[in-house]
């Protein structure tokens, strides 16, 4: 794909979250993931760009950005998990669901997707302790009332870890 040569993270994400997209465009979503993996500071830059899109007043743009985020968590590995697992990024998600920040102006669809993602990461990435801190803070605040049900295909773990067998 020759046209992809000059693409930046920002241009991939703009295409992947374009409000004019009729449906989620996986060519651009995967293009963004691949670009993250190619760049030295890909994860750091990507989470900043994603946070901005997730806070879009346009619901469809925000929903697509969350799909991109989910795809990155599945495809961009530990480097990306580390960036998502910092309060710097988690706070941007918290702002969207909290009525003290943007929550009153954001659709239920966007807020429930964020809560689903946070919860699924607390299960799939138990070592990322800040994700748990953020999620349980939302529970304490009454913003999350009960743990969402996560569809099996949405779980983050690509394949189950090998379990040592008892001899």
């Amino acid at each position: 794909m020759a046209e992809a040569e000059g693409e930046s993270l920002e241009s991939w994400l703009n295409k992947a979250t374009n409000p004019l997209n009729r449906q989620e465009d996986w060519e651009y979503i995967i293009g963004f993931c691949d670009q993250i993996n190619k760049e030295l500071e890909g994860p750091q830059i990507a989470v900043r760009l994603l946070a901005h899109k997730i806070q879009s007043p346009q619901e469809w743009e925000a929903v697509q950005a969350l799909t991109v985020l989910e795809a990155c968590m599945k495809n961009c590995g530990q480097r990306f998990h580390n960036e998502v697992g910092k309060f710097r990024f988690l706070n941007e998600l918290i702002k969207v669901v909290s009525p003290k920040y943007l929550g009153d102006r954001v659709s239920e669809k966007v807020k429930s997707k964020i809560i689903e993602l946070l919860y699924s990461w607390t299960v799939a990435l138990p070592d990322e302790s800040k994700i748990k801190d953020a999620y349980y803070m939302l529970k304490r605040q009454g913003i999350v009332l009960s743990d969402p049900v996560i569809p099996a295909e949405s779980t983050l773990i690509p394949s189950p870890p090998a379990r040592p067998k008892n001899p």
């Binding site: 910092k86 309060f87 988690l90 918290i94 909290s98 800040k130 801190d133 803070m137 605040q141």
Partner: peptide
């Protein structure tokens, strides 16, 4: 060292 100071500056949003 940079990572340590980043860790110190990384706080949960006040609610």
């Amino acid at each position: 060292l940079g990572e340590e100071s980043e860790e110190r500056d990384d706080h949960l949003l006040p609610m």
